[in-house]
């Protein structure tokens, strides 16, 4: 037997390792180039076009083709930033109680019936393309909002309602996972101490699952923050500071999708859009860090 020449198994091992490492390498290169590209384009607004970062973040006038009184292009991103955050937070606030209620029903109250009935519903909601959500929003929600509040009906309220339905399945299924992860013995312990089922849910299960439930909400917010198409169809697409929940405005994403076809690479108009993309990228990084941080906190049990 030749101990020094590599066996067939060793060769296979090496081949597997090469394939794995090259795939990882390609993905890393891809991610780094995307980050570099967005950052270089996004920062060009500030470096090449000499836009003041502070004025970019706090300005309320968005009209990159025009110059303002200081001789700088009018690229105030505050309306988009505000609207993006408002629809995200409002959608999360509306969706959370529904998601938790459905999750509690599915895990604690009627595990068999609840799962059989609601699991397919949630999967269906995930599967509907966002353009369909936007279309429904445009033809159903916007007229209703218009009827109740007057005006055009488009704006943050319509955006919130569409996003609420879109993030509901995400938050729900992650909440279901969070509740399922609470060990059975904690339920027994609570019941054996004379707690009712509702007391057990409220005081033990929700509390023990809280870090993972917060993670579920943040994942939902990340989805809401990044959603472009459905929001674009109901938000109004006017880069104006929102004056109410029913005034036409624009999110970071909807501004990008609306304008990106109308600009030429390398111009200030185009660079300004990349700066919006950079904000989106940084925000998704923040959401990821939050999830990571909360997950770490939750581990200390």
């Amino acid at each position: 037997m030749d101990l020094k020449s590599p066996s067939k198994a060793t060769n296979e091992d090496r081949r597997g390792r090469i394939i794995t490492y090259s795939c990882i390498g390609i993905i890393i290169v891809l991610v780094v180039s995307i980050l570099y590209f967005i950052a270089s384009r996004g920062l060009a607004t500030f470096i090449q076009n000499h836009v003041n970062v502070f004025r970019f973040l706090t300005g309320t006038q968005w009209n990159p083709s025009l110059l303002d009184s200081h001789g700088q292009p009018e690229v105030g991103a505050l309306p988009m930033i505000t609207t993006s955050f408002l629809v995200t937070i409002l959608a999360a606030i509306v969706a959370t109680p529904f998601a938790f209620a459905v999750a509690i029903y599915m895990v604690e109250i009627a595990p068999k019936r609840g799962t059989k009935l609601l699991q397919p519903v949630m999967e269906l909601l995930v599967g509907i393309p966002s353009v369909v959500y936007g279309f429904i929003g445009l033809t159903v929600i916007v007229p209703i909002v218009r009827h109740i509040f007057g005006g055009t009906g488009v704006g943050i309220l319509a955006g919130t309602l569409v996003l609420f339905v879109m993030i509901l399945p995400t938050v729900t299924s992650l909440s279901v996972d969070a509740l399922t992860a609470v060990p059975m013995y904690l339920r027994s312990a609570s019941l054996a101490l004379g707690a009712t089922r509702w007391q057990t849910i409220r005081k033990v299960i929700l509390r023990a699952a809280m870090p993972r439930l917060l993670t579920a909400i943040i994942f939902g917010m990340a989805r809401a923050f990044g959603e472009a198409l459905a929001v674009q169809m109901v938000i109004g697409n006017a880069a104006l500071m929102p004056t109410s929940l029913v005034s036409p405005t624009s999110t970071l994403t909807s501004q990008l999708t609306t304008e990106v076809g109308n600009t030429v690479m390398g111009t200030i108009q185009n660079n300004a859009l990349w700066s919006l993309a950079l904000i989106l990228l940084l925000m998704s990084l923040v959401f990821n860090l939050l999830v990571h941080f909360i997950g770490k906190r939750g581990e200390i049990k």
């Binding site: 060990p183 027994s188 049990k301």
Partner: peptide, 13 residues
Amino acid sequence: IGMVFQQPNPFPF
């Protein structure tokens, strides 16, 4: 009539 279980099961509080 209270119960103590096989596996120690304190709440994570």
